[in-house]
């Protein structure tokens, strides 16, 4: 097992159609710790201590896992072999202390697709997407078990740098989190971290603002403080900021929950544009929003994946009784 942990599937493996399930058994992740996760432990040691989101390999802790029917989690339709998913999650468990927050979630996210996660509040949606780019590492006291692969690479493997992972898997939060600096500096923040050249920065800032649909509104005021923008503009600025570092995946955690309908409309329009180039994952408690924007939708309830299907089918013809009651508004 120790030997196996450095096994990384090559391009050939994925192309030849080796399903993620097989990979999961081969590339069993190490029980070790990554060591430079921001905001956590001291170098070399598990980032641990303070935040210590502990990561356990599946084999390390199977005996601890509550006896649940893991096999009952439904598989996504269409079959994974057709297109290799960009992110694939296998049997993900997360505990806060002793309380399980996520119980055995398995999900795939495809490139150039919007995937929505719906469910009543407290069902673990936010925790789930935070594990996808290892932002969960900086939440104190979380324990994560399971396999998450980005392009076939186990993201908890020692050889993965979580900082670089977060550049590839960008995230936009529920409340807009613009920095108290100018609009330009906000978008350039990530680019300056990777020491891009000046001309590249200004080019990419323009490009990202344009993609986020902000450029026309703001092009004359790029040196204005970002705090002067309206809520909707701030949220789109956060999206532009995430796009600037050239991610492959964009995680959006209830991005419109604090916006008015017209600002929400703009963000939703933006999502249609974004999915031409990115894999988009959006958490929402608003079912209509999921129905409007998502290609596929997953319904989470009490930390379990109840149903995952094409959006249309999930809403119109759900297989599970629970899903049906939720989407018809009988609870939640």
């Amino acid at each position: 097992m120790v030997e196996g942990r450095n096994f990384v599937p090559t391009k050939g493996d994925i192309r030849s159609g080796v399903g993620p399930m097989q990979l999961a058994s081969a590339a069993s992740p190490s029980g070790g710790y990554a060591d430079d996760i921001p905001g956590t432990g001291f170098m070399g040691s598990p980032v641990a201590g303070r935040s210590s989101t502990r990561y356990m390999s599946p084999s390390e802790s199977t005996q601890n896992a509550p006896l649940e029917e893991m096999a009952s989690t439904p598989q996504p339709p269409g079959g994974p072999a057709a297109v290799a998913p960009l992110i694939s999650v296998k049997d993900l468990w997360v505990w806060a202390g002793k309380k399980p927050i996520l119980s055995g979630i398995s999900l795939d996210f495809n490139d150039r697709e919007v995937t929505a996660l719906i469910g009543p509040s407290g069902c673990g949606k936010t925790t789930f997407i935070r594990t996808l780019n290892r932002m969960s590492d900086v939440s104190p006291g979380l324990r994560v078990k399971g396999l998450i692969q980005y392009k076939g690479q186990d993201i908890h493997s020692r050889s993965v740098n979580p900082v670089l992972l977060r550049q590839r898997v960008g995230m936009v939060f529920q409340r807009s989190t613009v920095f108290p600096m100018s609009i330009f500096d906000n978008v350039a923040f990530g680019l300056r971290l990777i020491r891009e050249r000046r001309d590249v920065i200004s080019e990419r800032v323009t490009e990202s603002l344009r993609r986020a649909g902000l450029y026309e509104e703001l092009k004359d005021n790029l040196n204005r403080s970002a705090l002067t923008l309206s809520g909707g503009q701030q949220q789109r600025l956060c999206i532009a900021r995430a796009l600037a570092v050239n991610p492959r995946v964009l995680l959006l955690d209830e991005p419109t929950s604090s916006l008015d309908p017209s600002a929400t409309q703009k963000v939703e329009d933006l999502l249609f544009e974004l999915k031409r180039e990115y894999a988009v994952v959006i958490v929402t408690h608003n079912m209509q929003q999921a129905a409007r924007v998502a290609d596929r939708t997953a319904f989470l309830y009490q930390g379990k994946l109840v149903e995952f299907d094409e959006t249309k089918r999930l809403f119109e013809n759900p297989r599970e009784k629970l899903t049906e009651s939720y989407v018809t508004g009988r609870f939640g």
Partner: peptide
């Protein structure tokens, strides 16, 4: 060995020891 594996790995862009990344930042 990680470097070995990273060659030709599609996920090379998130690997710690991939060539071409600014390692100075992490140092």
């Amino acid at each position: 060995m990680a470097v070995q594996n990273s060659t030709g790995n599609p996920a090379g862009d998130i690997l710690r020891y991939s060539p071409g990344h600014l390692r100075l930042r992490f140092v």
